[in-house]
Design a protein around this nucleic acid. Sequence first.
DNA 1: CGGTGTACGCGTACAGTGTACGCAACGGCT
DNA 2: AGCCGTTGCGTACACTGTACGCGTACACCG
Lengths: 224, 224
Amino acid sequence: MSAREQRQVASDAGLSKQRMVVEAVRLADREGVDGLSMRRLAGELGAGAMSLYRYVASKDELLDAMVDLVFEEIELPLEETGWQSAMRRRAVSTRQVLAGHPWAIGLLESRTSPGPANLRHHEAVTACLRRAGFTVVMATHANWLLDSYVYGFALQEAGLPFDTADEFADMGEGVYLPQLPPEEFPYLNESAAALVAGGYDPADEFTFGLDLILAALEPLRAAA
Amino acid sequence: MSAREQRQVASDAGLSKQRMVVEAVRLADREGVDGLSMRRLAGELGAGAMSLYRYVASKDELLDAMVDLVFEEIELPLEETGWQSAMRRRAVSTRQVLAGHPWAIGLLESRTSPGPANLRHHEAVTACLRRAGFTVVMATHANWLLDSYVYGFALQEAGLPFDTADEFADMGEGVYLPQLPPEEFPYLNESAAALVAGGYDPADEFTFGLDLILAALEPLRAAA
DNA sequence: CGGTGTACGCGTACAGTGTACGCAACGGCT
DNA sequence: AGCCGTTGCGTACACTGTACGCGTACACCG
């Protein structure tokens, strides 16, 4: 079977923007966003690179669509359980989704036109907060605060060179401490030693901060 | 004067890693990180592209150094004014610095080995919190929370397609509202209208969230 | 049946990218 | 004078995004 026939077979599923975006997300998950090129994506789809330009105007537009697809994985908040629980579930879901697609975080800052999924989320969160009694201004404050915290946490977590408490302990002793002369970094040394000894797991940080923020927002609900 | 002689004159200042990094940060500020290439940087320095590889092993190493230079601009916390004031000043400084170098935010997630300036900051912040009475674990919690909030805020702020309250008002009415059918996005419409009418400035969000977090951390100081 | 328009696919070419390799020039030292 | 180290960098290679234009297939119409 010639290369063209092979491509024909692959394309019998038909190229589409949806197929492209899904495959692009897979490729970015495996190789990072730097490993995503139009030629490589076309190879994965059994198509020519220039065929992709029938479905997206540019690589930038593809990246926009990829970010929106990631947003679609985030759960919409359910209000039946109360605003705090709904916000918590949404925050946990966002963090999990971004942990699965760490390349997407770095793209958030350069996507200036939010996609449909992003807008739907924004509407759902705003609805939940308003119905819980927050004023428009307070709901906006809460939205900013929660999103900032969640995205910032995901950003930092993505930059960690380990995934588990054990790996943290190993790196702490094998990599970090040797680089931190105690006379120059006494507090970091103290912290590293105490945290490793205490079985510290940075994954626990998320709920600590989230709980603190949600608790601090509660009294602001009925602000006049 | 031949091209070589021109370059010789320019190079009389001598290439160095420091000069490269400073110039690279300037270029990224003007053109974004996508506009930064080794050839363009070399052109700015009056050198050949391959000369740069005497001072950095790779473009990745240059990016690491750029991020660390940005960290150096952030003020170290001064404790004389109390831990809250010190944390607030550091947070405000971080936000200002990242607002000036928005390209750096997206790089934070891929830099897994913190540079010297980053470590010095980490030590200074940890010292301040520990001396204010936070336990090692609580100081770590506070560090994570504050950094997550600040980086996340900077990330979102960098993605905003406007800079001032007036631009927000203009875009709200001219761009956003037309894209949000009221029957589909009733709460976003309500919010946009109310915020524009109230002279809302998203820049104020930062201090709202920061104040709330610092107030929520205060009772945790003497946690045993 | 032939002509036309549209949809789909994509090869070629261009200008740009990071960097391996190896060469040239210069200064210092013996 | 020769050797060595330092500094600079040109060439070449493989890869990148995408403008342009061409080929093929299909549907529709007269």
